[in-house]
Design a protein around this nucleic acid. Structure first.
Lengths: 201, 201
DNA sequence: GCAGGATCTGACCGATCGGTCAACTATCTT
DNA sequence: AAGATAGTTGACCGATCGGTCAGATCCTGC
C-alpha cells in the first residue's frame, strides 16, 4: 500500500479540493465561492466535494486550520517568552507564516470580521484579538495601534492582491517579498530597535 | 416643491437604501450581500430597492462612485502637479478620503481584485493601478513597493475592521484616527523627509 | 471471480438568489 | 373631483445555492 510515492487517490483528491477551495475563498471570498465552482475547477462533481467534506464550512475549516494553528503557536511563544528580542522573532515567524499560508491568512484576517459566526473563524479572530492586546499592552499610543492594524491587514491584503495589480513578469519573487516584508513589518511591529533593519539596499 | 428642508421622500428613500447597502457591501462583501437583506435592514421591500436602483450592480455603483471620483481627483492632482511637497499633500487628501468614505474605499480596495468584472470596480482598479505606477516610478525598490501596498490595503482594512476587534468604548475617535493615519501613511508614502514624524513618544 | 468497501456522480430537495410585472396607494396638478 | 404620476409591494420567474440520497463504478483482498 503506497503511502508516500503515490498518495492514494483519496488524500490526493481531498488535497486537490482543499487547495482549489482555498484559492477561491481567498480570491472571491467565502460567500462568493460556490461548491459547484470549486468542483468545476478541480475537475470533480459537486457531490464529490461533499463526499470528501461534510459541508462548505468543513471544507473551509480543513483549508485554513493549519494556518490558524501555526498562528496560535507563534502567538503563544510570543506572549509566553516575553523579552527584548521577542518582537524580532515574532516578525520572523509572521513573515514565514504569511508566505507559506498567504491564502489562509487572507481569509481569516480580511474576511474574519464578516465570518465570525463560523467556529473556525471565531477561533482565528480570538487569536488576532490576543495578538492585538499583547501588542497594545506594550505600546498604548493610538498611532502604534494603527500602525499594527495597518501592518496586519495590509500584509494579508498584499500577498493575494498583488496578483491582480501587477503582471506576473514584474511581480516580486517570494524571496524578495520576504526581505521586504521583514523590513516593513519590522518597522511596524518592532519600531524600538531600528538599527538592524537595513531598509534593503 | 421642497428641495432643501424636507428631502422629498424619493431621494430620502434612495439615500437610505444607498447607505444601508454600502455598509453591508463593506462588512460582508458584495457577493455576501442580498437585496432582501438590504431591504429588510432599510425597512423596505426588495421590490422597492429595485425600483430605486435598476440592479444590485447599479446600487453598488451609486454607493461607491462618489468616493472613486474623489480618489481620481486626488490622483490627478498628484500626478499632474509633481514636486517635492506633493507626497505630503497626497497623504493629507488620502487620509481625508479614507475617513469620509471608509466603507466605499474598503469595497473597491479590498474587494477590487475579485469584482473587476463590474465596470465601476474596473474603473477604481485602473485608478489604483495608476497610483501604484506613479509611486513605483519614483521608488523602484521592492521594499518601497511592499510598503505602499501594505499601507494602501491596511488602511482600507483597518477602518472598517476595527469595529469588530475593539469595543466601541476604546475605539479611537475619527480625530485620533486622522492623526495616527497621517503619521503612519506619511512614513509609508513619504519616507524621504522623516523629520516631521515623531515616531510616537 | 467475487464480495465489499471506497470513491464518484446524477437526480433531486427546499431555500434563496437577482430580477420582472401588475396592481395598489398616496400625492400632486388641473 | 378626476386624472396623471410617483412610490411601494406581493406574487412570481428561472437560476443557483448548499445539501441528501441512491445507485454506478472502481479497487482491493480473498
Amino acid at each position: 500500500m503506497p503511502t508516500d510515492a503515490q498518495p492514494t487517490s483519496r488524500v490526493r483528491a481531498a488535497d486537490e479540493l482543499k487547495q482549489v477551495a482555498l484559492e477561491q475563498f481567498a480570491t472571491v471570498g467565502f460567500a462568493g465561492t460556490s461548491l459547484q465552482h470549486i468542483a468545476d475547477d478541480a475537475g470533480y462533481s459537486k457531490s464529490s466535494v461533499l463526499y470528501h467534506y461534510a459541508s462548505k464550512e468543513a471544507l473551509l475549516e480543513a483549508a485554513i486550520e493549519p494556518a490558524i494553528a501555526e498562528f496560535e503557536a507563534v502567538l503563544d511563544d510570543f506572549v509566553g517568552g516575553r523579552g527584548s528580542g521577542g518582537r524580532r522573532l515574532l516578525v520572523d515567524r509572521i513573515v514565514d507564516l504569511l508566505l507559506e499560508h498567504r491564502e489562509a491568512v487572507h481569509v481569516f484576517i480580511i474576511q474574519g470580521p464578516s465570518l465570525s459566526h463560523l467556529p473556525i473563524i471565531a477561533r482565528a479572530n480570538a487569536a488576532v484579538r490576543r495578538l492585538t492586546e499583547a501588542i497594545n499592552e506594550q505600546s498604548v499610543s493610538v498611532t502604534d495601534q494603527v500602525r499594527f492594524g495597518i501592518a496586519l491587514g495590509g500584509a494579508a491584503f498584499l500577498l493575494t492582491a498583488a496578483r491582480s495589480y501587477v503582471g506576473d513578469d514584474q511581480r516580486p519573487t517570494d524571496d524578495e517579498f520576504r526581505v521586504a516584508l521583514h523590513a516593513v513589518l519590522g518597522e511596524s511591529l518592532a519600531p524600538a530597535d531600528r538599527d538592524s533593519t537595513p531598509t534593503t539596499d
